[in-house]
Design a protein around this nucleic acid. Structure first.
Lengths: 154, 154
DNA sequence: TTGTTAGTTAGCAAGACTTGCAAATTAGAA
DNA sequence: TTCTAATTTGCAAGTCTTGCTAACTAACAA
């Protein structure tokens, strides 16, 4: 996504207000590669701006996604994640700690056979496995693993 | 997944009961390539067995998935889908009618660069676009499209 | 056929994640 | 400072799924 400064400019041009809430979120999202959920961002934002509403976080994230400033990532664990990296890339999800990492793939997969006639607009690839850290941890002490990075109560 | 008869055998071996509800669901799932959600199956099952509980459908689907008889497919539209096709394949989601189709890809994508050190256990590829039918319909009468095959209220 | 019992089902409540709504605020322009 | 449309909030509500538990029943033995 664009930098907070550039976003400010874009918002002004669209007659959208530059509220403190939005500015805070722009900053928290910029170059954030942790793939946070709305709730994650809300927690962090709350520390810097107690009282900010979760509803506002959802609202702002939704706007940014609609404007093409954020990519929505769904790894099937319940909550949607937001990724400011709009370049072409895919995702790796660690089964141990839950972390999500951007990855590049050697070549975009193509449909083979009957389905080849489909009109494809988008291809999403999600890898599941163990990240370097968890993989190493498992080797050192099987059974143990890095603490889950993303809280999941479900 | 296995055929209803084979599943019956497997369940017996595991001391699991062969209830009418389970038998019905086995049948409805067998060779079902429509990628139904729990709710979808519940509706169909209800016609043949009025009174069956949605809870039971979830329960049974969960058991089958755990036994490796069903694959869970999440295309990010809210509800999980169940796919009895356990062979290696990926999915195509039609943006117009919502239908999901199994597809094969020419080669499994590989992670490139730094992420190459990850321990990958599973690769999921989801294509989004227009299925043959909707693609043709759009060309015939732009603006129109096939009726959504999967109800989504969200 | 009957009794026994562990496995199941059904219903409802509740939890997680999101979104709709309406009232209260406020950024930005005049 | 005033005005107004855009925003933020808080809460209710909706969707999908799971936990809990009382009632039920498939499967097996006598």
């Amino acid at each position: 996504m664009h930098s907070p400064t550039e976003l400010a400019q874009i918002f002004r041009e669209k007659q959208l207000k530059l509220t403190p809430q939005r500015q805070l979120l722009f900053g928290l999202l910029h170059e954030n590669n942790a793939h946070p959920s709305a709730e994650n961002l809300f927690e962090v934002a709350s520390k810097q701006m107690p009282g900010i509403s979760l509803r506002t976080v959802y609202q702002t994230l939704g706007e940014l996604a609609e404007m093409g400033e954020l990519q929505l990532v769904d790894v099937g664990d319940g909550a949607k994640r937001f990724d400011p990296n709009m370049g072409e890339h895919h995702h790796f999800v660690c089964e141990s700690c839950g972390s999500i990492h951007d990855v590049e793939i050697s070549s975009t997969p193509k449909i083979r056979g009957e389905g080849a006639g489909y009109e494809v607009n988008e291809v999403g690839v999600v890898f599941h496995g163990k990240c370097t850290r968890c993989s190493a941890a498992t080797k050192r002490s099987p059974g143990h693993q890095a603490k889950k990075q993303v809280a999941r109560t479900k």
